[in-house]
Amino acid sequence: MKQYLRGLRLGVPVGLGYLSVSFTFGIMAISLGFSWWQAVLISMVTLTSAGQLAGIQVMVNPYQYVTMLVSQLTINMRYSFMSISLSQRVSPSFKGIKRWLLGFFITDEIFAIASQEENVDPKLFLGIATTPWIGWTLGTLLGSLIGNVLPQVVMCALCLAIYGMFLAIVIPPAKKSKPIMIVVIISAILSCIFYYVPLFSGIPSGISISICAILSSLIGAFLFPIESEVSKND
């Protein structure tokens, strides 16, 4: 219980961030012709940002099942790497059915929070995941019901919440560790190339994110292999 409560507290900022991001998702789903319960159901059982946004755009056209599958696999490939990374940080009791059930909650941000722990206990992980899941569901509900009530300018500013959260996760460790700083800079440069160079700009963002992250982490691993147990970056 103590572990669960500690996780709950760690997850609150992510929950707040998700509330604002999924709010935008709710608005977009309604504007594409979905009903509020469909938008909420999608969020409850999928719990991903880029994948859901791409997903509802595919759903608008009938019978695009293969497109749906292929786009989801490429957009979400990064989760596999996070799952493997997280599998190295879990406590011995985190096995079997617990992994099958809690694996559902591996999102970028929940993973990032859990990665700051030395030993991820199942209860701690469930605690971290609780408010983000509620925030993601609730935000979608609110966005789909009352999205058009909020002034445009407030809506726009809220879209920055998730990125502010990312900064707070990345900057402190990057400040303390030169290897992380260099990996982060390489990833940023690669990402800009994908975004601004016309040749690459047609590549879906889910794929380019995976490529940037994998390439920069590979370069980091070869330039700065972390010896033995000093892999904790706090």
Binding site: Q88, P179, V183, A188, S191, S208, A213, S217, G220
Partner: peptide
């Protein structure tokens, strides 16, 4: 050691790739 290092860099690399440059237009 290389695989371990790769996996420990992944979270930061993912977050930055998602942020830059999309966040500038958020």
């Amino acid at each position: 050691v290389y695989v371990r290092s790769f996996l420990s860099y992944i979270p930061y690399a993912v977050l930055v790739a998602m942020t830059v440059p999309s966040a500038f237009y958020a």
